[in-house]
Measured scan of single mutants.
Amino acid sequence: MEVRTIKVFTTVDNINLHTQVVDMSMTYGQQFGPTYLDGADVTKIKPHNSHEGKTFYVLPNDDTLRVEAFEYYHTTDPSFLGRYMSALNHTKKWKYPQVNGLTSIKWADNNCYLATALLTLQQIELKFNPPALQDAYYRARAGEAANFCALILAYCNKTVGELGDVRETMSYLFQHANLDSCKRVLNVVCKTCGQQQTTLKGVEAVMYMGTLSYEQFKKGVQIPCTCGKQATKYLVQQESPFVMMSAPPAQYELKHGTFTCASEYTGNYQCGHYKHITSKETLYCIDGALLTKSSEYKGPITDVFYKENSYTTTIK
């Protein structure tokens, strides 16, 4: 009895394709271990004539594949690729409408935090270190965002349907971005203890939790000093293409032309909904596939993004 075979390709990165001759009487799992086709788990399936010449994702289970996976995804987590594939199996079914010149995501599976993050990423200057993220990001900007969303979920250790947080998501993504040249110098002034300067680099240099107003941050924000008295913390120097200011959701007025974009969060910790506000020729609110415009805006804002380049204080 002759062994019926077909020729397929296996890959971990969709760049390096490895030619395989597979036995049609055995499952993919018996031949390769966990195997995925377009995100779908085909591990328990036997090869079919229609699979001839198709590319299958496999887990990096030998040295060659491990090197290829690390170079593309910059992670050695053995569960990463499987999590990416199972997320992709959902995100490829989502709709990605162009809204006001940006790629958004039609609401499904509690994905409003991903839509808000995706919209924000198209408006701030950011370059990702893992080629996987950078490639998928370019495709997302062009309207094909399924891979990018699935990668975000995998890097953030999230599953489809789980509630997510924009600030946490951005923080994970910033860790995989090139923020080497970003720098922030802060000064804390206390009447009792004097003053202390701190220099922050990388992710810490672009994120701040405690106030939404970048102007206020430049002037000074009140913080408790270690001595128990009130101290003032203010920005001395900022070198970065953008800054992200966050605070627990509270009524906040966004003035046209003073910011790049913002995240609105309605609801409580267990259950809520994100919308995205962007400042173009007027203010726009993007909620999944829905767009509304207004000249002014007041609502429960939790993150505001500002364009920056270089700032030095005039406070002496």
Rank of each mutant, 00 (worst) to 15 (best):
P78A: 15
H176W: 15
L37S: 12
H18R: 10
Y311W: 11
E52M: 11
Y84Q: 00
T278C: 15
L235K: 00
T314R: 14
Q98C: 09
T43M: 12
K275Y: 00
Q98T: 14
Q196M: 12
L283T: 07
K127C: 09
R4N: 15
Q123K: 04
T64R: 10
K218N: 00
A115G: 06
G299S: 05
T11M: 06
S263N: 14
Y269K: 14
V203E: 06
Y214Q: 02
I152Y: 02
Y72H: 13
A132R: 04
A205Y: 01
T76E: 09
S79L: 13
Q31Y: 13
N268G: 15
L179N: 00
R4Y: 14
E253W: 08
F128V: 02
Y155W: 05
F259T: 03
G29Y: 11
V42W: 12
Q237W: 07
I6D: 04
P97W: 00
L290K: 15
G210I: 03
K307M: 10
Y274P: 00
S171M: 11
L179G: 01
V99R: 10
S246L: 01
D287P: 03
N49M: 10
K218L: 05
L200W: 06
A250P: 02
K218S: 05
I6S: 07
A250W: 05
Q20C: 13
K280M: 09
T282W: 08
E144A: 11
M24F: 09
E281D: 13
Y155G: 01
T260M: 15
A205D: 00
I105F: 03
K307S: 12
I301R: 01
I286Y: 10
A87D: 01
K54H: 15
S295H: 12
D23V: 14
R66C: 12
G210A: 01
V203P: 12
T312C: 09
K298W: 11
G267F: 07
T43D: 11
H51N: 08
T192M: 12
N178Y: 04
K158Y: 03
A145M: 02
E125G: 13
A140V: 13
A108T: 08
Q230L: 14
E144W: 07
I105M: 04
T91M: 01
N61Q: 14
D165F: 02
E281C: 05
K158D: 04
T312A: 10
H90I: 13
L212I: 09
Q20E: 11
I223W: 10
K201Y: 13
Q30E: 14
M209D: 07
T120A: 14
K7H: 12
Q197V: 12
S213R: 04
A289D: 14
D303W: 01
K229Q: 09
P224Y: 12
K44C: 07
V166A: 07
D109N: 09
F32E: 05
A250Y: 08
H48M: 13
Y208F: 09
V221K: 05
R4K: 14
K229E: 15
G194N: 00
G202W: 00
C285N: 09
L118Q: 01
F70V: 12
W107D: 05
S263K: 00
H276I: 04
Q222M: 12
N100Y: 08
D63Q: 13
L212Q: 00
L186I: 13
G267N: 06
G267D: 10
E264L: 06
Y113S: 01
Y73N: 02
G33F: 04
D135S: 09
T211M: 08
S240N: 01
A117Q: 04
T19V: 13
H256D: 06
Y172N: 14
I301H: 00
R167D: 01
D165M: 07
R184G: 13
V203L: 10
N147K: 14
T313V: 13
E125M: 05
V21D: 13
Y72Q: 09
H273D: 00
C285S: 10
T169C: 11
V188I: 09
E308H: 07
H48N: 15
M209R: 15
L59N: 14
G210S: 00
N14P: 04
K183L: 12
K95H: 14
Y138V: 15
V206T: 04
Y208D: 05
N129F: 05
A146M: 06
N187H: 11
H256T: 11
D109W: 04
N157K: 15
Q20L: 09
A289L: 08
E168H: 15
G299R: 06
S104N: 05
N16T: 09
E52V: 14
V166W: 02
D63C: 09
I315E: 10
L153T: 06
C190R: 03
E168Y: 07
S50Y: 11
L126E: 04
R167F: 03
Q216C: 09
L118K: 03
T120R: 03
I15V: 12
A140E: 00
P60Q: 07
P97C: 15
F128S: 02
A177R: 03
H273A: 02
V3E: 13
F217M: 11
Q216R: 09
A150G: 05
P60R: 07
V304N: 00
A150W: 01
Y73S: 04
S25G: 11
Y73F: 08
V304H: 01
Y306G: 02
G228L: 01
V3C: 14
H276Q: 03
L186V: 15
Y252M: 14
G267E: 14
Y252T: 13
Y84W: 02
A250V: 10
T260Q: 07
P131C: 05
T282M: 11
T266V: 11
L212V: 12
S295A: 14
E52Y: 11
V206D: 03
Q251V: 12
T10A: 09
L283Q: 02
L59M: 13
T103E: 03
V22G: 09
K46N: 13
Q98I: 11
Q195V: 15
C190G: 02
K158E: 00
T10W: 09
D180Y: 10
G202Y: 02
P224F: 11
N157S: 08
R4H: 13
N100D: 12
D13S: 06
K255N: 07
L212F: 04
T55S: 12
P249C: 02
V243H: 01
F128P: 05
T55N: 10
D180T: 10
G39V: 08
V58M: 08
K54Y: 14
Y155P: 01
R4G: 13
S279E: 01
A115D: 06
H74R: 11
D303F: 01
K95I: 12
C149L: 11
G220K: 03
L200H: 15
C149F: 01
N100R: 09
N309F: 11
V12M: 11
K106V: 15
Q216E: 12
K293W: 11
E239K: 11
R141H: 09
I223T: 13
L17W: 10
D109A: 06
L186S: 10
S86Q: 15
K92F: 06
D165I: 02
